[in-house]
Nucleic acid binder design. Structure first.
Length: 424
RNA sequence: GUGGGUGUAGCUCAGUUGGUAAGAGUGCCGGGUUGUGGCCCCGGAGGUCGAGGGUUCGAAUCCCUUCACUCACCCCA
């Protein structure tokens, strides 16, 4: 029988990697609690309609990357390709906007997009999502970005660059779009095939294209920053002022546009050069029209998504500590093994990380095992020790060994706790 | 969806113009110490050379097909 492998683009997170995941998630939760951001847990499956409306019918995600299927009830369901639409859905469905003027929410979990996998891109990947809903004060934007940068520093990242831009609003973007389209139409023959298609579908996206001809066409193209309305311009200036106030350095990337339809005004991205072609660790922006689009009242919002796999691949090795057992019990003879079997599980109840070997192996091989596991102490109990109610306690770091009395289990647990806490 | 690269031991890889080369290192198990880890030495287990077909007296090696992995494009976290 051929063995079954995992689904393409779906990765196992192995025991050697989970400490890094814990590290990231724990730090994130701690930072969020300082900033008053509360966790919300949302389903992985939603009605397909939610993403079609929320993300945009014409986006690549909706057009060709969603895992969608027909449920037995005759309804189309989709494995979520992103979290924001779901969070907004929950926010509206449970009327959270009626409870507080500002809801600060985070969620951590898997997303699904059926893309071709490559470095830093998977079909199931994980995101840390944060959404601030209820207000459009530019101080909200800057605080969210400030928190994001703080979080990235906290998990150990350096050498990041923050880029921001403003994408305008429904008042000013359509006008800019016309200006841009008419400018690019003259250069259509220098654009790549994809961008010629974008010309009518979503001309802003041409800014993202890496093709030479398109890049050249874009360098002289009008910038959205020069065409946003006064209100958007003031908002963007305030965001910058506040970032400076919070000592958060940034660069303005006049060509940054984001791929999802719902973004308005502030857009931002954090990139690194250590990730290959998929260099965005995190990205986000304001989406003031989204709640209305999803059938709710008109409530402004802003959020970001961190790619956890990409983030973890950037964490320095030493940040992810591995867990070594405190003590290994090496038993010789069946009587000693029974004794150690009871003792090991008693010590564990007392909170000591304890290991032993059940097979009838030589002391030498048990010692090797203890060493391999990185145990700090080994307690050696053989037939002789059982008779004399004593045991050999060996410190695996220095190798010194002494005899201790096999008193009650609780005494032993207390003894080990003292030893473990003492500096080596 | 499109292109490039790679598939040999658990892992990292070597295999000379097709001709006793199925190999190394590492890891695993055991021994050198009848009850003591690390360093060293010795031994052992482990592979239908991704799969299928073809050429040939003979294929890990050449050809075709297929699958997987990987990188890049598209797009995004």
């Amino acid at each position: 029988m051929a063995s079954i492998s995992s689904v393409r683009g779906f990765k196992d997170i192995l025991p050697g990697e989970t400490p890094r995941w814990h590290h990231v998630e724990e730090r994130a939760r701690k930072v969020f609690s300082s900033f008053g951001v509360n966790e919300i847990r949302i389903p992985i499956l939603e009605k397909t309609e939610l993403f079609k409306r929320g993300i945009g019918e014409a986006t690549d995600i909706v057009e060709k990357e969603m895992y969608t299927f027909l449920d037995r009830g005759g309804e189309y369901l989709t494995l979520r390709p992103e979290a924001t639409a779901s969070v907004i859905r929950a926010y509206l469905e449970h009327h959270l906007y009626a409870e507080e003027p500002l809801s600060k929410l985070y969620t951590i979990g898997p997303m699904f997009r059926r893309e071709r996998p490559q470095k830093g891109r998977f079909r199931q990947f994980h995101q840390i999502n944060v959404e601030f809903l209820g207000q459009d004060d530019p101080r909200i934007d800057s605080e969210l970005i400030f928190m994001l940068i703080h979080l990235l520093h906290t998990v150990g990242l350096t050498d990041l660059s923050l880029e921001i831009n403003s994408l305008g609003c429904p008042e000013c973007r359509p006008a800019f779009r016309k200006v841009l389209t008419s400018f690019l139409e003259d250069k259509a023959n220098t654009l790549c095939e994809d961008c010629r298609r974008r010309l009518s579908a979503n001309p802003l996206r041409i800014f993202d294209c890496k093709q030479k001809g398109c890049q050249e066409a874009i360098t002289e193209a009008p910038c959205i920053l020069d065409h946003i309305c006064d209100e958007c311009g003031r908002h963007f200036k305030e965001v910058q002022k506040n970032l400076n106030l919070l000592n958060t350095s940034f660069t303005i990337n006049r060509k940054m546009v984001r791929g999802l339809d719902y973004y308005t005004r502030t857009a931002f991205e954090v990139t690194t050069n250590a990730l290959g072609a998929q260099n965005a660790v995190t990205g986000g922006g304001r989406y003031d029209g989204l709640t209305k689009l999803l059938g709710g009242p008109d409530i402004p919002g802003i959020g970001f998504a961190i790619g956890v796999e990409r983030l973890i691949s950037l964490i320095p090795e030493e940040e992810a500590a591995t867990l070594h057992p405190d003590v290994f019990l090496a038993a010789l003879g069946s009587e000693a093994r029974d004794f150690c079997y009871r003792l090991s599980n008693t010590l564990r109840l007392a909170g000591l990380k304890t290991e032993m070997d059940f097979s009838d192996k030589s002391l030498k091989s048990q010692m090797k095992r203890a060493h391999k596991l990185g145990c700090r102490f080994t307690l050696i109990i053989g037939e002789k020790e059982m008779k004399e109610k004593k045991a050999q306690l060996r410190n695996m770091e220095g190798g010194e060994q002494r005899e201790i009395s096999l008193a009650s289990f609780s005494d032993l647990a207390a003894c080990f706790k003292r030893l473990i806490q003492s500096p080596s």
